[in-house]
Design a protein around this nucleic acid. Structure first.
Length: 261
DNA sequence: AAGAATGTTATGTA
DNA sequence: CTACATAACATTCT
């Protein structure tokens, strides 16, 4: 196992396994017991900026979590199972909690480190403090493909490989168009759609770019292809032509060559 | 059970 | 210098 587990550091710093009376943290190395009976740190706040999370503890620490492609949160109900190998943090109360498994990054950060990390992020369409002009400006000036720009977290924070494909398809924009080729209307439309879709994602805890009401009615049991427009589809839902992929930003971007220009 | 994957960073190049 | 593109890394799930 890698050495940079949050819990290793927490335990080392404080000389004991940290277990809270309302929340607790443990690891595969630490014993998980007395969850509801021992005083310990409390989680006071979790802040999200783009895909990055900052967990604030009443000890004064901030734990930075970056899930990456592999990280998962798993809900827990008592009786709590032993943490599996990839569990980095566990947060529980008497009623329940969650494990964080397999995050790319999970470590205590100083205020300075956090500021450094956040300085590199562009506006997050979910945040009320987001400045859309920063997004507009970056896109407007860039000679890079819009498909790459949407994945660049310093241009806009929070868009991943699924959303970028869906956004460009929905707006009929070819992924290889450069940022500066797009007119103000198109850039505005991108931002507005990100704001709308990400809010839907939060609400349903899923990426949904089709009608969320229809999807919601069947309680999310609908398969992925019902929630998405192009991502990983063989054929275009609009024209019936073949969906193709192009590598942009190092990842495959799904698009319809005839519907997107 | 090999390979793809809802991602980022460091490093090199134009 | 800036802005991009590419390789490297990481762990889970199918």
């Amino acid at each position: 196992m890698p050495e940079r587990h949050t819990i290793h550091r927490l335990t080392r710093d404080h000389g004991k396994l940290l277990v809270g009376n309302s929340l607790s943290v443990t690891s595969p190395q630490g014993r998980f017991a007395d969850a509801a009976s021992v005083d310990g740190p409390r989680l006071t706040n979790v802040e999200a900026h783009g895909k990055l999370l900052f967990y604030r503890w009443d000890l004064g620490h901030t734990v930075h979590v970056h899930r990456g492609p592999f990280g998962r949160f798993r809900r827990l109900r008592p009786p709590f199972p032993e943490p599996r190998e990839a569990v980095r943090t566990r947060v529980v109360s008497k009623a329940g909690g969650f494990d964080s498994t397999g995050p790319t990054d999970c470590r205590i950060v100083s205020a300075d480190e956090e500021a450094g990390i956040r300085d590199r992020l562009g506006p997050d369409p979910l945040r009320s403090d987001a400045d859309p002009d920063r997004f507009r400006g970056r896109v407007n000036r860039s000679r890079a493909a819009i498909g790459s720009l949407l994945l660049n977290q310093s241009v806009v924070a929070g868009i991943g490989n699924v959303y970028r494909a869906e956004l460009l398809f929905s707006l009929g924009i070819a992924p290889t168009r450069t940022g500066r080729e797009l007119d103000a209307t198109a850039i505005d439309a991108l931002w507005d759609l990100m704001v709308e879709w990400l809010a839907i994602g939060v609400r349903y805890n899923r990426i949904i770019t089709t009608d969320p009401v229809v999807v919601g009615r069947i309680r999310g049991r609908m398969r992925r292809h019902k929630r998405l427009l192009v991502y990983k589809k063989p054929c275009c839902t609009e024209c019936g032509g073949g969906i193709e992929t192009i590598a942009l930003g190092g990842r495959p971007l799904y698009y319809c060559p005839s519907c997107q220009s």
